[in-house]
Design a protein around this nucleic acid. Structure first.
Lengths: 174, 174
DNA sequence: GTGAACATGTAAATTGTTACATGATTAC
DNA sequence: GTAATCATGTAACAATTTACATGTTCAC
């Protein structure tokens, strides 16, 4: 899903600023989509030009706080883009890449990379748990629970098989 | 992990062609990294220029099958890149994006997107199961089992909570 | 008063995909 | 013979990140 659609999507829950969109993406979408400010502002400008988004109140003074609101046309675009959204899930994992080439790492690095990833997963789990699911739609809650299920499974897998894997790599090397 | 490192990584398991690298990436890395031919060939050319990779046998006739082999320097680069590999896992999921904005979809679309994703997950599970784990390193096996654990958890979650979610969305709408 | 968070925007650089262009080999 | 797969490489295009440049507001 591209940044423009993501912006429209965030605005469908209420008006906010470009900066606010980035925060929302980080907080609510972080586990399946991402967008940086350098992508959000141009996308927002384009959306305004297309009439999908409008600026609330004060017009166009540069470097001033601008609040954006979704228009009816934007709602249409969002509905269409959402229905068309397709394609497989893609994952990029520096951790799994490192593990794949673990035969080039010394055991300290293997352990470090492993521990870092486990800590990252636990942090993600905490973050997901702390999200205020009360004021969410069913669809939103579903994405959180889905992420929770996969994250929990990843943690369980690493706790269960991690140390065995490390010693197996060690053994393999001798 | 960038395409160049991925190429070096594949070549660390044995010499092959650019096309062969793409197949290997698709088969073994598909669940945590990806690379297209349009990225692989330039990356390979750069790696040859740096002396990280060498062409086996026949020199440089264009449009002829060229087999690449990792050099000692390439092995060094790969080891360094692998040890430095860091950063969080990033996921891009058109499916979860669609679910997040499910309030803009009609129920047919919700059901279709859901079924497509479940089918995709099952296909991925089959693919992972069919990989020949016999001739793999421990690190490689770990990445496969990790992917298996998360994929299985995703399938279980969807089977367990999917229909309830669909009806909840339906209820929410009335 | 000062550091963190809020806030906007542009531009360079990176990175990669898709499409184009070409042709060989293999299996049916 | 013909379709699929194998095979290489370039170039146009797309998308995004990072860095730069600037300034405000709020809490301590």
């Amino acid at each position: 899903m591209d940044v423009r659609t993501l912006c429209l999507g965030v605005l469908s829950f209420g008006e906010t600023t470009g900066y606010g969109i980035r925060k929302a993406v980080g907080d609510w979408f972080g586990h399946f989509a991402q967008a940086s400010l350098g992508a959000i502002y141009p996308a927002l400008a384009k959306a305004v030009a297309r009439g999908e988004v409008e600026v609330v109140g004060s017009a166009d003074m540069a470097l001033e706080k601008r609040t954006f609101r979704l228009t009816d046309k934007g709602r249409e675009t969002l509905a269409a883009s959402t229905a068309e959204a397709s394609g497989d899930e893609t994952v990029r994992s520096p951790f799994l890449s490192a593990m794949f080439f673990a035969h080039f790492l010394d055991m300290d690095d293997v352990n470090r990379v492993f521990d870092e990833r486990l800590a990252g997963l636990r942090g993600e789990q905490r973050r997901l748990r702390s999200l205020p699911s009360g004021d969410m739609t069913e669809g939103q809650r579903f994405t959180i629970r889905y992420a929770m299920a996969t994250t929990t499974a990843a943690i369980a897998f690493m706790e269960r098989e991690g140390r065995a894997m490390v010693t197996a790599i060690e053994r393999e090397r001798t």
